[in-house]
C-alpha cells in the first residue's frame, strides 16, 4: 500500500491514543481469536502485507482504521474464528479480517470518552493485494501499531481527519 500522505507515528494531540489502539487490538485477538499478540520487533518482510481491511469512522472522530497483514495470517485468523482447520478456510478470509477490523475500531472508539455514541462505523471493506494507493484527506499523521500474530506481522493504523 502506498499513501500520498507521509506517515509518521502520530501527532502530539493523538499520541496518547496509540496505547488504546494497541490494547483494543490485543483484546480482540485474545477474546475472539484466543491469540496473544506480541510486539513487532523486526522490520516487515519484503513481501509485506497483502490484504487490508478498512473501517471508516464518522462523527466526533472522523477517519479510517485499517488492519493489514499477509493473507496467510488472515487465513489463520479465519481458521481460529471459525474453529476449522486452516486448509478448510476459503472465502471467509476477507469476512474474518473485515470483522477483526470492525471490532478493533469499535473497541477503540468505546475506550474514548464520548466516542461510543458520537462516532459511527462504516461496514468494513477489504482489499486483496498491495499494489494500491490511498488518497486520504486526513490532515494529521496516522497512528500506527505494529504487532505480531503467530509470528506474522499485523499493522493497525488510524488516519484521523481532525
Amino acid at each position: 500500500m502506498k499513501s500520498v500522505n507521509p506517515q509518521q507515528s502520530g501527532d502530539d494531540l493523538h499520541r496518547d491514543w496509540i496505547p488504546l489502539l494497541e490494547l483494543s487490538t490485543r483484546e480482540v485477538f485474545e477474546l475472539m481469536i484466543n491469540s496473544h499478540l506480541s510486539v513487532l520487533e523486526k522490520p516487515m518482510e519484503p513481501e509485506g502485507p497483502n490484504i487490508t481491511s478498512m473501517v471508516g469512522l464518522a462523527g466526533r472522530l472522523c477517519g479510517v482504521l485499517s488492519v493489514r497483514c499477509q493473507e496467510k495470517a488472515a487465513a489463520l485468523m479465519a481458521s481460529k474464528m471459525l474453529g476449522v482447520e486452516l486448509d478448510k478456510v476459503g472465502p471467509e478470509i476477507a469476512d474474518a479480517l473485515g470483522e477483526v477490523c470492525n471490532m478493533v475500531a469499535g473497541n477503540f472508539k468505546n475506550k474514548i470518552s464520548g466516542m461510543g455514541d458520537g462516532c459511527m462505523l462504516s461496514p468494513p471493506s477489504v482489499i486483496m493485494g498491495n499494489d494500491y494507493s490511498v488518497h486520504s484527506t486526513a490532515d494529521t499523521p496516522s497512528l500506527e501499531v505494529g504487532l505480531m500474530f503467530e509470528n506474522m506481522p499485523l499493522l493497525v493504523s488510524l488516519q484521523i481527519h481532525s
Binding site: 485474545e30 477474546l31 475472539m32 471490532m103 475500531a105 469499535g106 473497541n107 468505546n110 455514541d117 458520537g118
Partner: peptide
C-alpha cells in the same frame, strides 16, 4: 461493536432484553 450508552438505551427501549459488546 456499537457500545455507546445511547445505543444501549435505544436498543433496550426498542425491546432488546440484553446487550453485549464485541469482542466478548
Amino acid at each position: 461493536t456499537e457500545g455507546g450508552e445511547a445505543h444501549v438505551v435505544e436498543a433496550l427501549s426498542c425491546g432488546a432484553r440484553g446487550y453485549i459488546r464485541k469482542p466478548f
